[in-house]
């Protein structure tokens, strides 16, 4: 069978049919995978909350507007049998090397950082992605930003930056700082 001739109608029809089938296939797969993808996201958030706020029995959700403008942060206030044990904050920064980074930061009621989990990032593989390794993020554990300067050592802070990923390290600190600021703000309001 010889190849079809390149007449105007032939070309138009071919492209029309091919793109129509492709869009149908793509949208079909999108609808099929929408559920599982949302479920994966939810589980991931759930797991991150458990990581940064261990031992809670239930939590309340609350959206908080940061005082410096920008998008709201999601607060998950954890309780063990009505006793507040801390807050997990879904925070973000836009100053990553490749833009948006989302973190889950856990605070004890006094403001001490329990743990940090990376939720979403697009940093350079092998460099910026090292921020989710224990070597970098574990240095935040048990520190209180009240007396722990959330800036890389190069900028006069207390955080050891990732080698060759200073911008990512700065962004990480920025996100944690944003979470802490809102956390403090909320504490004042509730008093």
């Amino acid at each position: 069978m010889a190849q079809k001739e390149s007449t105007f109608t032939n070309m138009l029809l071919t492209l029309l049919i091919v793109t129509a089938i492709s869009s149908l296939a793509a949208s079909g797969v999108y609808n099929l995978t929408k559920g599982p993808i949302a479920e994966v996201q939810r589980l991931k958030q759930q797991k991150a909350i458990e990581q940064v706020m261990p031992g809670f029995t239930h939590y309340d959700r609350q959206a908080v507007m940061p005082q410096n403008g920008g998008d709201s942060l999601l607060f998950f206030k954890g309780f063990t049998n009505e006793e507040p044990i801390g807050v997990a904050v879904n925070t973000y920064t836009n100053v990553g090397y490749s833009g948006l980074i989302k973190l889950m930061v856990g605070f004890k009621p006094d403001g001490t950082i329990t743990n940090v989990e990376v939720l979403e990032q697009k940093e350079t593989p092998g460099l910026g992605t090292k921020m989710s390794t224990p070597k970098f993020k574990d240095q935040f554990m048990g520190k209180n930003p009240d007396n722990y300067k959330l800036m890389v050592t190069k900028d006069g802070g207390d955080v050891d930056a990732i080698t060759a990923a200073t911008i990512t390290s700065r962004a990480f600190c920025d996100a944690v700082q944003r979470a802490y600021d809102s956390f403090e703000e909320l504490k004042k309001e509730n008093k």
Binding site: Q3, S6, T7, T14, V18, S22, A25
Partner: peptide, 26 residues
């Protein structure tokens, strides 16, 4: 055999892009 020669590249790209989207979503 059903794709006219002059539009074969755009057709191929659409096919490839569809498969990539499917792989990504799955």
């Amino acid at each position: 055999n059903v794709v006219p020669g002059k539009v074969r590249i755009p057709t191929f790209i659409v096919v490839i892009a569809s498969f990539v989207t499917v792989v990504d979503l799955v």
